[in-house]
Design a protein around this nucleic acid. Structure first.
Length: 557
RNA sequence: GCGCUUGUAGCUCAAUUGGAUAGAGCGUUAGCCUCCGAAGCUAAAGGCUGAGGGUUCGAGUCCCUCCAAGCGCGCCA
């Protein structure tokens, strides 16, 4: 069965073209998928379009609407489209489309028969790189990182499902001053254990989390450990912390495909090479001993330093080398999750990328707003350096990862977000995720009951009489099932998993209402089979949707 | 001071990117298990979408001016 929206778009375009040739419509108009939308109210049909209010015409509005909808009806018939039962005119804006129930029945049938859930392949095998979390390996992941982790993973699944080839990458900032400080802080911890005064550098890492590692090193190497060169401590600390990060991510349900080390980029000479190319292009200059990149023409308020006068690089230099690598690996779409503090870097990154000969439009920056953490109404100041933070692992221990991920996903990336740990624990039983999971458990329970009551019946998708589904909730459910694909599509296009989440909530709401009012497994075998088919279709959609959000679909709870 | 982001029900958030009577959950109030799972359902109450102007058939959404909050404004990352 073809996509209803696609059918409408095609027919609308054909009708517009006819009127254009007759010079009734005085301007070309290309009908987009977005032009067919879902009406707010049920009485307005299942789909609608406002395009006639946007197209200039020689006819008075009312006459235009009438003649257009008549011709559209003919066009639909000629195209063999049987999905549309009726077209309503609501002046001065809308054409409303009412569907034939048969169209929805066929949609349901293809879901349960062939597991065709209606996903559109918008990726078409294009490769997309999703870089997220990328927290410095100087301390454990915090709750704030959990937001990016949950968001990135869900988006990755949605894009993969939409036909993209997805790579999830973690950029490892494993060199530079912060790493040196980390090493010095670890060394200070070792000295402390050996009986010396604790002397962590001013800007060093005060957190207790380095203590166990320091103890390990002391017991392994003895007092001579403090003779080791500073790189030893940096490497040891980083390795340990990275292992912890990977562990926390796995516990949180997120697995990366690759970890890109900044140090490696430097060691392979890629940073130098990138700078050399930029210099040859003449887009850099030296001023007061530092090397600048001419980013001002790209909307930056001043040119940016690539190499400081002490010879070391700023963040920008290796990052440009990194993005050059991304492009050279052939990614068609490069998605970066950044905190709001990096907003100012968008222009300079895109400027650099353009200079290097790549298309900056292929880079999408998703700004994930910070999460403000509260505990019992009190705001927590988080600082990895001072060792004041709530690690992500605390969250997965005190709440289930499903609950936490769902909490993060239910807010758009760009919205500011307060997270009160006490409140989250208190309310976790009320979290909307259980509304969804309760539905999957309920569905499983229905099938258990059916096995017990009528073990002999079997569902034959080709035979079942779906026209018996006439209750309002049944029609609504069938309609919603047909909208799974479009929801995934919109979520993928807008890079917003939240859209899928809203869809699933409305789907499940209708199901709970339905269940309350109608008996699924009842005395009438044909009706029972039809209803079981509906529930079965719902189950596969729901399971897929929850999978895309990286949330479990339990059979009991 | 300048830039970016945000401001929607008591609280946390939606609103198909300019569409129809602004919707959910939590909280409050009143009901529903003799029936496949009550972590559910039904109903009520709750709004001048921060304020004021503008654009047009039509604005929570776009433009301008204020107000408030968060984040930036480094040769830190």
């Amino acid at each position: 069965m073809t996509d209803i929206i696609q059918e409408l778009v095609g027919a609308l375009q054909e009708t517009v073209d006819i009127f254009r040739r007759q010079k009734i419509i005085t301007k070309d108009y290309s009908v987009q998928k977005n032009d067919v939308t879902i009406p707010r109210e049920r009485g307005y049909g299942e789909y609608c379009t406002p395009i006639l209010s946007r197209i200039p015409s020689t006819l008075p509005r009312e006459q235009l609407f009438q003649e257009f909808s008549q011709t559209l009806g003919t066009v639909l018939r000629n195209r063999g489209c049987v999905s549309i039962k009726k077209i309503d005119i609501v002046l001065p804006v809308f054409l409303n489309f009412h569907l034939n129930p048969e169209a929805l029945q066929e949609r349901l049938r293809s879901i349960i028969k062939n597991n065709e859930v209606g996903i559109e392949d918008i990726g078409q095998g294009k490769r997309v790189l999703l870089e997220f979390v990328s927290a410095n390996p100087t301390g454990p992941l915090t709750i704030a990182h959990g937001r990016q982790a949950a968001f990135g993973e869900a988006l990755g699944r949605i894009l993969a499902y939409s036909g993209y080839r997805v790579t999830r990458e973690y950029y490892l900032n494993d060199e530079g001053r912060q790493i040196d400080l980390l090493g010095e802080s670890l060394k200070a911890r070792c000295r402390e254990i050996l009986g010396e005064e604790l002397l962590i550098p001013e800007d060093g890492y005060q957190g207790e989390y380095l203590v166990p590692l320091a103890q390990k090193l002391v017991s392994e190497f003895g007092p001579t450990v403090k003779e080791k060169e500073s790189g030893f401590f940096s490497r040891a600390a980083m390795q340990e912390i990275l292992e912890g990060i990977k562990c926390d991510l796995l516990d949180f349900g997120v697995a990366f495909d690759s970890y890109q080390s900044q140090r490696e980029l430097t060691e392979q000479g890629l940073v130098l090479e990138t700078l050399r190319i930029l210099k040859e292009l003449g887009v850099t200059y030296v001023s007061e001993g530092a090397l600048f990149l001419k980013t001002t023409p790209f909307g930056d308020d001043k040119d940016r330093v690539l190499r400081k006068k002490d010879g070391s690089y700023t963040y920008l230099a290796p990052d440009l080398a990194y993005h050059r690598v991304k492009f050279q690996k052939g990614y068609d779409l490069i998605i970066n999750f950044w905190g709001p503090d990096h907003y100012g870097y968008v222009n300079r990154l895109k400027a650099g990328v353009s200079f290097l000969g790549f298309d900056p439009e292929k880079i999408k920056i998703i700004i994930v707003q910070l999460t403000t953490i509260y505990r019992g109404g009190e705001k927590l100041k988080m600082s990895t350096r001072r060792g004041e933070f709530l690690p992500l692992s605390v969250l997965t221990e005190e709440l289930s990862p499903d609950v936490t991920r769902f909490f993060f996903l239910s807010r758009k990336a760009n919205s500011h977000l307060d997270f009160d740990l006490e409140l989250a624990k208190k309310d976790s039983a009320e979290n909307p995720i259980f509304y969804l999971q309760y539905a999957t458990a309920r569905i499983a329970s229905i099938f258990r009951y059916q096995q017990e009551k009528m073990p002999d019946v079997s569902l034959d998708p080709a035979q079942v009489n779906l026209s018996l589904l006439q209750e309002p909730e049944e029609l609504e459910l069938m309609l919603l099932l047909s909208r799974f694909g479009p929801s995934v599509l919109v979520a993928a296009q807008n890079l917003e998993p939240q859209i899928l989440l809203s869809y699933l909530l409305s789907l499940v709401k209708t199901f709970h209402q339905y269940y309350q009012r109608c008996q699924i497994v009842g005395p009438d075998e044909n009706l029972t089979l039809a209803r079981l088919s509906l529930v079965s279709g719902l189950e596969s959609i729901l399971k897929k949707g929850l999978f895309l959000l990286n949330v479990h679909a339990p059979e009991r709870m």
